[in-house]
Simulated scan of single mutants.
Amino acid sequence: MQDFLTFFETMPIWMKAAWVFFVLALFWVLEGYYSLINLKYKKWKHAKTNLILLAFVMVINAVFGIATAAIFIWLNDSQFGLLHLFEAPIFVELLLSLLVLDFIAQYGVHYLLHKVPAMWRLHIVHHSDKHVDATTGTRHHPFDFIIRETFALIAVVIMGMPIAFYLFYRILSVLFTYWTHANISLPAWLDKGISYVFVTPNMHKFHHHYQLPWTDSNFGNMFSIWDRLFGTFVYDDTKKIKYGVDLADHIDDENIFTQLGIPFNKTVVSKGKESH
Results as ranks from 00 to 15, higher is better:
Val174Trp: 05
Arg170Tyr: 04
Ala118Gln: 12
Thr68Leu: 07
Pro89Ser: 11
Ser78Gln: 13
Glu149Thr: 14
Phe165Lys: 11
Ala152Ile: 10
Phe91Cys: 07
Val92Trp: 10
Met161Gly: 02
Phe103Met: 05
Leu96Ile: 14
Leu153Val: 00
Pro117Asp: 00
Tyr107Asn: 09
Met161Asp: 04
Tyr166Lys: 09
Pro142Phe: 11
His114Val: 09
His131Pro: 01
Ile163Asn: 01
Leu153Ala: 01
Arg139Cys: 06
Thr135Val: 11
Phe103Asn: 01
Val109His: 03
Tyr111Ile: 12
Ala70Glu: 02
His110Tyr: 11
Gln106Pro: 02
Leu85Met: 13
Leu112Ser: 05
Phe91Trp: 15
Ile171Lys: 00
Thr135His: 05
Ala134Gln: 03
Ile124Val: 15
Arg121Gly: 07
Leu153Cys: 00
Pro162Tyr: 03
Arg139Ser: 05
Phe165Met: 08
Lys115His: 13
Leu172Gln: 09
Ile124Gly: 08
Pro89His: 13
Val92Ala: 09
Leu172Asp: 07
Ala118Trp: 15
Pro89Met: 02
Phe168Gly: 09
Leu83Met: 11
Ser128Ala: 12
Ala88His: 02
His84Arg: 13
Ala134Met: 02
Val100Asp: 01
Gln79Glu: 09
His140Thr: 10
Phe168Asn: 09
Phe72Asn: 06
Glu87Gly: 13
Lys115Gln: 08
Ile104Thr: 10
Val125Trp: 12
Val157Phe: 09
Lys130Gln: 14
Leu99Asn: 06
Gln106Val: 11
Phe80Ser: 12
Leu175Asn: 00
Ala88Asn: 04
Ile146Ala: 15
Lys130Glu: 13
Ile73Glu: 09
His84Gln: 14
Phe86Tyr: 12
His123Pro: 04
Ile146His: 12
Phe72Arg: 06
Ser78Asn: 12
Ile104Phe: 07
Phe145Tyr: 15
Asp144Lys: 14
Leu175Glu: 00
His131Asn: 11
Leu96Val: 14
Leu99His: 03
Ala164Glu: 13
Glu87Ser: 15
Phe103Cys: 03
